[in-house]
């Protein structure tokens, strides 16, 4: 199976990367200049991996940070960050300037995130260990990413068929996390909500719940570098502004703004 990777442009230029990685048969991904595909099976065992030249990441999971649009000097919260693909991708687009708070409720999963931060050499990330629903209000962020814990039904790694009750339980958690994420956002800020699952309960209904509770929230249709499908909730206004797509995994994304 092909492996998708993202260059760490903080460490190596594209030209040098393509040169040193050519022995692994990498080919660029057309819609994202930082992404490559390789058929090589053990990329994590290579010298170039240990030198922090790249991060192994599914193509679909590269999209939420692109929709968030990180820029130098942003103050970003990644609310459910581990193992860190999206936090480190944001930091890379920020040229390691500004602030990324990478939070995860699991302390054990933060260890994995820490090893990636070290290997990629990123100094602008602070790791926190809060339950996202109770994330403290001491800071406000101009961008927040919530790649929510979900039933992962769109993931190629998903082997479990979740019960209806489990999905409802996850949806309750997602609604609470999204509400807190929105409240931490400063006026004019951007919040990206994403999951790697396909159920309406965990996607459109979660976003709809936020829009009902916060009058100053609105959805903006994201600009993606490829065509994507609409939502499937039956609410035409909402469905036309959220997106569903499948690359190597199926993802749902909503871009929410705060007035």
């Amino acid at each position: 199976m092909a492996t998708s990777i993202r260059i760490n442009s903080l460490r190596i230029s594209k030209g040098e990367f393509e040169d040193v990685m050519s022995k692994y048969g990498i080919s660029p991904v057309g819609w994202y200049g930082e992404a490559y595909i390789s058929e090589y099976e053990n990329l994590s065992k290579t010298l170039e991996y240990q030198l922090g030249y790249f991060y192994i990441q599914s193509l679909s999971s590269m999209i939420p940070p692109l929709v968030l649009g990180p820029k130098e000097d942003d103050i970003i919260l990644d609310m459910a960050a581990a193992p860190g693909s999206k936090s480190t991708q944001c930091a890379m687009h920020m040229n390691d300037k500004g602030v990324v708070v990478a939070n995860d409720v699991s302390y054990m999963r933060l260890k994995s995130l820490a090893s990636h931060i070290d290997r990629l050499g990123i100094t602008c990330i602070a790791m926190t260990n809060f339950d996202g629903r109770q994330f403290p209000s001491v800071s406000s962020f101009n961008k927040v990413l919530l790649d929510a814990p979900c039933s992962s039904m769109g993931s190629r790694r998903c082997k479990v068929q979740h019960s209806e009750g489990r999905v409802r339980s996850l949806a309750r958690l997602q609604k609470a996390l999204l509400l807190r994420a929105f409240d931490l956002l400063c006026p004019g800020g951007t919040l990206v909500y994403s999951t790697c699952t396909t159920t309406v309960h965990e996607n459109e209904e979660v976003v709809e719940s936020l829009l009902q509770k916060r009058e100053n929230a609105y959805i903006e249709k994201p600009a993606l570098p490829f065509s994507f499908g609409p939502g499937i909730s039956g609410n035409d206004t909402l469905d036309s502004k959220v997106c569903r797509f499948t690359l190597d995994e199926s993802f749902f994304i909503a871009k929410i703004r705060k007035r």
Partner: peptide
Amino acid sequence: YSALLDRLGLKVVRKGIL
């Protein structure tokens, strides 16, 4: 770590790289 992280005022597990 980046000096900007000291402005956060959050209880953090770790900042920057080891």
